[in-house]
Amino acid sequence: GPIILDTYRVIADFEKTSKHEINLHTGDLVEIVEKNQNGWWFCQCESKRGWVPASYLEPLDGPEEAEEPDPDYEGDLHITTQAYQAEQEDEISLEVGETVEVIHKLLDGWWVVRKGEETGHYPSMFLQKSDKKN
């Protein structure tokens, strides 16, 4: 049968930063072809196709909370594959190879992680599941 794609509404203008992305304008409707855990979703909008940030989209039929996975306060062990320097106050700075506990895997690709006493958002594309047990 026909594949029915999820339709989302654009909530803010977005300017692409690489050729594989597409520009977005508030109010546009886009159809999602693929949702990537790193927060980039592949979509088609009119005649254009490309990657867009999930953080700039909301589902047509109401808030996204229903889609967000529940937090796991026990923490899911991951290792940082790339360093990142926090740019906003609710983010956390980490070096390569650090073991952290992932508390909340948000759809926008910025996961809430805990390192000792510190918690903050970190790019999920710089995290890799660790096979170490808690």
Binding site: A12, W40, G50
Partner: peptide, 22 residues
């Protein structure tokens, strides 16, 4: 281009979205 997602992290949610979430 579905095969090569961007290598840089996506932007954080726009400010108005974060006010809604808060």
């Amino acid at each position: 281009s579905i095969k090569n997602p961007p290598q840089n992290p996506p932007p954080r949610p726009p400010p108005e979205m974060r006010r809604k979430q808060a």
